[in-house]
Amino acid sequence: MKTTAEPGWLRWLLIAAALGFLGINLALPLAQVFAGALAKGIAVYRAAVVEPDAVAAMRLTLTVAAIAVPLNIVFGLAASWAITKFDFPGKAMLISLIDLPLSVSPVVSGLIYVLLFGLQGWAGPWLREHDIRIVFAVPGIVLATVFVTFPFVARELIPLMLEQGRSDEEAARSLGATGWQTFRRVTLPNIRWGLLYGVLLCNARAMGEFGAVSVVSGHIRGLTNTLPLHIEILYNEYNYVAAFAVASLLAGLALVTLVAKSVLEWRFGDAIAGGGH
């Protein structure tokens, strides 16, 4: 035995304590979702999932993610490119700002959009004149989701790009590559796995966001209800089986995300370093 190893019994005790904590705190809730969903058999489960309001919520959730995720890929790439490849005053400030949506309550994030675009908000009168609805409509949900999920791509890319430095790009430039050629052929391949990793997390949050979306959506069934909001409604109506059935879809998505994320970590650990969440 090495001098710096714990005795066997202590090692097993620590492992058991850690696993016990994780089991109660993480595994049990996950199991509860699926158990709750199948409590009344598979037929009830299927009925709850294909019910029209659930399908509409699913469609809306997918639409929102399909808009918010690509937008944040662009924003995230632009922000991390600017931060890592150029020097400018206030750079440190900008880096800490990027994380801000993570530490602001999602409810507050939603509130912001109500204040800006709500009927009594700053842009309210103008929007009403032009008959544009943002709050309590799909655009508001998209905006709030973009805000809340903005950090995920950028915060994966910035440490990665900082660590890789600028010399690859400089080499490409000295060999005659244009800015776009440099980005497409040198930068992007270097960060692709980190980018995918960020997109994965961004997508999971975009589909699952509750607080911010709840505030801006208005909860109109079949129209502005996303899957998480639909779960809340079902749950508050004491329709537990249906609530868990819909929840199991999102839990399934979470599991897929975790598996994909782990595969990325094992296979391309070095290429997504910088790490974090």
């Binding site: 979702v33 929840a247 839990a251």
Partner: peptide, 16 residues
């Protein structure tokens, strides 16, 4: 599994 709370929508966690 440690990352589950990042990936699992909060509403799902809440009802579970």
């Amino acid at each position: 599994l440690v990352d589950l709370p990042f990936a699992l929508p909060t509403a799902v966690a809440g009802i579970a």
